[in-house]
Amino acid sequence: MFYWFGRQTLQVIFGIGDYSLFTVKAFCALAKSKRLVRRIVSAVHEQGTVCLPVILIVGLFTGLVLGLQGYHVLSRFGSQGLLGTLVSLSLVREMGPVLAALMLIGQAGSALAAELGIQRNTEQIVALETMGVNSHGYLVVPRLVASLLVFPLQTAVFVVVGFWGGSLSGSLLLGVDSGVYWSAVQRAVEAQDMRECFIKAAVFGVLSISTCAYQGYHSDRNASVMGARAVSASTTRAVVFSSILVLVADYIISSFFV
């Protein structure tokens, strides 16, 4: 029993160390990577353009729901005027960065893990290495750099669409004066909140994309499953681990800002 516990603990520590090494190695490969801009552009496409519809839809509905729920709670106290405050602060501080990151993990992160997993499986990653191409530099770095750019942008889009969603349900459907709503939005959000929002988004981006890349890149690590199963297992792990990491990091960052 104790042996089992010890082994599991060591495994977790080894995993964390290995993952950190992987990420650091990737950033070190940044300098050596060639023709990086084009790879980054296509990575921005993968994480940005491709995922934009999901971000728009989820952002809109998050705003709508926040407006609806917030209105009913606030109207109990007769302070519907604070609806803009509620919607904007919850979007900017929490919902925006977290939900956008989760959506991006679901779409771009899982795709990345599966892609790298298959490339590992079909020896494409080894082939890169034998060509003298730094596989971190070629496969991982562009994605990480793109995530630093894309996650904050997607979060911004998410938040703005969420504001509109909130105003749609709050003022159009439920009758809060739209001037009151928007002025509350503008009054509530401060530079500090924006900073928190974008720091979170960038951190979530690097965390989740590096986790997904790590899982895909090392999809052959787990000896108990092979082949297609290994790819699916590593994709699952990628999504689960990076989602958990995002929520844990969210708590930690929030605790710094509050």
Partner: peptide, 12 residues
Amino acid sequence: CSFLFQSNALFD
């Protein structure tokens, strides 16, 4: 040096 894989390992 180049290596030719049994599976070709082409970038699909």
